[in-house]
């Protein structure tokens, strides 16, 4: 994986955030700790710090997004950066311009950071390979590959409620096959030392040899959810499905939808998470999504602090080379 190299410069500093694969436990814990200090900004009269003052962040979202794009925008603005949101429908890529040409043009406008989401795996990596060294790239989701900032905010949310990663059972449920969130979560959980990571899905929605990622695979909820501390529900990504992978939505909900009944299998203090957007009555029952064990909205709130931490981490020392 050459991707490991490009995220880290010769001095060992994190310069891009493309995947969690290959990042060390201290790196991940450092980001979580830093995010902690950005929590509670609402108490301030001025909800901003000047860390990224004078920097320009471009949100480059080739795929639709509500939570991720908005929280990246809020995060960048709280760090005092100038933020530009690119709307793909209005962009020149729809006139045939390549992604790299789009980036080169934005670069020519003296931007400092790109937050990239694209339906093709590896797009953020491709861009990172072609930008000058002072520009930072954050992957906000590429195809089925990775969604590292989402996984980090999920780890942050888990840590708030279950601080001891070394004694956790985590089950990730649903459309594992199409989920970049699941892949990044699995890397993060393994790196942070979680001993019991499970994926639960019908065979048709499990990647082949999923166990090689360091998880145990289950095809039924009853045994898969048994005694777990954390349940992560995933959205069924109908738009990415090719062919008939589930018999029907009703049948999927009956077997794999998280209901109060099925939740009984987990520990009594288990928490329920979902990266959103949720499909009520398809992968999760409303009573669970809105119930006392749900952390779905705190996840969204935490997204701001965690993304602030990642942006600050990448931009800190960005002038290092020029200064030296």
């Amino acid at each position: 994986m050459s991707q490991r190299d490009i995220q880290i410069d010769e001095a060992g500093n994190l310069v891009h955030f493309l995947t969690l694969e290959g990042l060390s436990r201290p790196t991940l814990v450092g980001i979580l700790d830093l995010a902690e200090s950005f929590v509670g900004f609402e108490a301030r009269e001025i909800k901003k710090v000047p860390l990224l003052r004078g920097k320009t962040v471009v949100n480059l979202f080739f795929e639709p997004s509500t939570r991720t794009r908005t929280t990246f925008e809020i995060a960048a603005k709280r760090l005092s950066a100038d933020v530009i949101n690119m709307n793909p429908a209005r962009m020149s890529t729809s006139k045939g311009e390549t992604v790299l040409d789009t980036v080169r043009n934005l670069e020519a406008m003296h931007t400092d950071m790109f937050v990239v989401r694209h339906e093709f795996s590896g797009t953020a990596y491709l861009i990172a390979c072609h930008v000058p060294p002072h520009i930072r790239i954050i992957n906000a989701g590429d195809g089925r590959h990775a969604h590292p900032t989402q996984a980090m905010l999920d780890m942050f949310t888990i840590r708030q409620h279950k601080p001891d990663f070394a004694n956790l059972s985590v089950a990730i449920v649903g459309d594992i096959l199409h989920s970049r969130v699941a892949r990044s979560q699995i890397h993060a959980l393994n790196t942070l030392g979680v001993p019991d990571i499970r994926v639960i899905a019908p065979m048709t929605l499990l990647p082949t040899e999923v166990e090689r990622l360091g998880v145990r695979a289950y095809t039924d909820m009853a045994s898969g959810l048994d005694d777990v501390d954390v349940i992560v529900m995933l959205r069924l990504q109908m738009e990415r499905m090719r062919g008939q992978l589930i018999p029907s939505e009703q049948a999927f909900f009956r077997c794999y939808g998280l209901t109060e009944d099925k939740l009984q299998q987990a520990k009594t203090d288990a928490v329920v998470m979902h990266p959103g957007p949720i499909n009520r009555g398809l992968e999760i029952a409303s009573s669970v999504a809105d119930g006392p064990q749900s952390l779905i909205l705190p996840q969204v709130t935490n997204g701001i602090a965690v993304r602030m931490a990642i942006m600050a981490q990448l931009m800190g020392g960005a002038g290092r080379k020029e200064a030296a």
Partner: peptide, 13 residues
């Protein structure tokens, strides 16, 4: 000196 030396990982609130 943030843009020169980066951020300390253990910022206290």
């Amino acid at each position: 000196d943030f843009s020169r030396v980066g951020i300390h990982p253990q910022v206290k609130a």
